[in-house]
Design a protein around this nucleic acid. Structure first.
Length: 470
RNA sequence: GGCGCCGUAGCCAAGUGGUAAGGCACGGGACUGCAAAUCCCUGAUCCCCGGUUCGAAUCCGGGCGGCGCCUCCA
């Protein structure tokens, strides 16, 4: 592994050197959230991962067009339409409009992304605003003769797409799909999936549209194909998403897109991040063990402390989330920031001395976004006393362009910001006792405050206090 | 049943053929009236068995254990 950015391609299952389709320009599509409920920390890993990818591409000097979708139309719980529509269910439960729910959770997601220092995508597109494009793509597929109509909707016939099993290396005869859910009657083969679903006249949906095939709503997979084509063209460089999408969603996207657009490969590199697990189980809405970013903050884990946590593991491996690990990350993050910011600003930058350290960091980034190694390299820079403080600062600024941890600019929580007359009084009383060398009294007050989770720190400028993290 | 991932110090986690990164915790030290905060130091032969090799955590074979996907979920 020498020059260039190497990325693991799920399609070939190898690390490959990234070569953009158009020189100097990278086009990336990321499967975004379905906004029927709050996005939890498990959902944030793909955001941070995609952000690291984007920053790595920028670091290579490329222009980046990053497109992310928001699924704001309830797709169905499965392709065969045997389950409930999550947007519709959420709307019914709360008595609110689907649009209202979507707007709320889209906003929450964007806020959390930004607090995690994820760069905004160049294009943020919503499924409901691209119904036309989806219908158009389905129309093209129909013209090409790969669709068929049954009572339930318009379906894609996967037998018409020979490369169907390629991405996930499927053995269709051995797939056990349809075992846990009832299959739709009339499908030619289990893997066929809906492009357009007909509205059930009995059931009044909030979200339905007219189409050449009748009133209804789009199948889940078509939105990504239609919107990526609109904003990135008929072929683009990188498509990211969670591992669980390999077998169904991305496989179906490829079938639709390559058939409709007549291209291959439609996407050069497919990248998939693995799950965050908690107590031996994935963190997901379906398992119910979700935790929100704001809940993390209430525990004393800052958003960037959580980003640091995520950077400690490689994106292609499952990462264990546990309170101890989160706290370890928060502590490690604060110390790293404090050390970085303590570096003197004056002095010269020694370029030749900086080079090996820079190389070490970039090597890690270029090796399939190896964040743990990159983070270790940055930690090494802060503490490398053979480098002048100015050199270290300069290097850390470069590193942070990728890490996104605000190493030199973050404002750490200050201990003395809070004022409380009673506590301030006790702290002052203790200080007076100390000055009178009445140690027993001083310690008694300190113990009293400690019992309420208040910690006193004696600094050269006098005592300060803070509440211990819960 | 098919596809895939993983098992490294107390915890998290890099490393994928040449003799074990990093973080946190613990312990020791400095500092402190004692603490806290801070700084310094300190720990593992890599799930088990067999094989290949001059040499394996790293490759191959066989076990044991955990996780994910094949419904929606990042």
């Amino acid at each position: 592994m020498t020059d260039g950015l190497f990325l693991f391609n799920s399609r070939t299952r190898r690390k490959e050197r990234f070569v953009p389709i158009e020189a100097g320009q990278a086009r990336v599509y990321t499967c975004g959230p379905t906004v029927y409920s709050p996005q939890h920390i498990g959902n944030m890993r793909p955001n941070v991962f995609a952000d690291l990818l984007k920053r790595a591409l920028l670091m290579e000097g490329l222009r980046v067009t990053h497109v992310t979708n928001v699924t704001d139309v309830g797709h169905l719980t499965d392709d065969s339409d045997a389950g409930d529509d999550k947007m519709e269910v959420a709307a019914q439960k709360t008595g609110r409009r689907a649009e209202e729910i979507a707007a709320e959770y889209t906003g929450q997601w964007l806020r959390d992304r930004r607090r995690l220092n994820c760069l905004d995508p160049e294009v943020l597109c919503k499924a409901t605003e691209h119904i036309e494009e989806q219908i158009e793509m389905i129309r093209v597929l129909e013209e090409k003769g790969v669709t068929y109509r049954i009572d339930d909707g318009i379906y894609f016939d996967v037998s018409k797409f020979p490369r169907y099993t390629e991405l996930a290396r499927l053995d269709l005869d051995q797939q056990q799909g349809g075992q846990r859910i009832a299959d739709v009657v009339g499908k030619k083969q289990p893997a066929d999936f809906a492009l357009w679903k007909f509205a059930d006249p009995e059931l009044k949906r909030q979200q339905e549209w007219d189409s050449p095939w009748g009133r209804g709503f789009p199948g889940w997979h078509i939105e990504c194909s239609a919107m990526s084509t609109k904003y990135l063209g008929t072929r683009f460089d990188i498509h990211t998403g969670g591992v669980e999408h390999l077998t169904v969603h991305h496989t179906n996207e490829i079938a639709q897109s390559e058939t409709a657009l007549g291209v291959h490969p439609w996407v050069s590199i497919w990248m998939h991040e693995d799950w965050l697990v908690f107590g031996g189980e994935k963190i997901a809405k379906s398992t119910g063990n979700v935790l929100l970013l704001e809940e993390l903050e209430a525990m004393g884990i800052s958003p960037l402390g959580f980003r640091y946590f995520l950077l400690q593991a490689h994106y292609r491996k499952q990462q264990n989330v546990a309170e101890q690990g989160l706290r370890a990350a928060e502590t490690g993050y604060r110390r790293l920031v404090a050390q970085a910011q303590a570096l003197a600003t004056e002095g010269n930058v020694d370029e030749s001395a900086a080079q090996p350290r820079r190389a070490e960091f970039r090597e890690a980034v270029r090796d399939d976004l190896n964040a743990p190694r990159a983070l270790a390299a940055a930690t090494g820079i802060v503490r490398d006393e053979s480098l002048s403080p100015a050199t270290r600062r300069a290097l850390l600024t470069e590193c942070d362009a990728w890490l996104g941890l605000d190493l030199l600019t973050a404002e750490l929580p200050q201990a003395t910001q809070e004022t409380d007359p009673r506590i301030d009084g006790l702290v002052a009383a203790r200080q007076a006792a100390r000055e009178a060398k009445q140690w027993a009294e001083a310690d008694r007050i300190r113990d009293e405050l400690a019992a309420e989770q208040i910690v006193i720190e004696d600094t050269p400028e006098g005592p300060i206090w803070r509440r211990n993290d819960p």
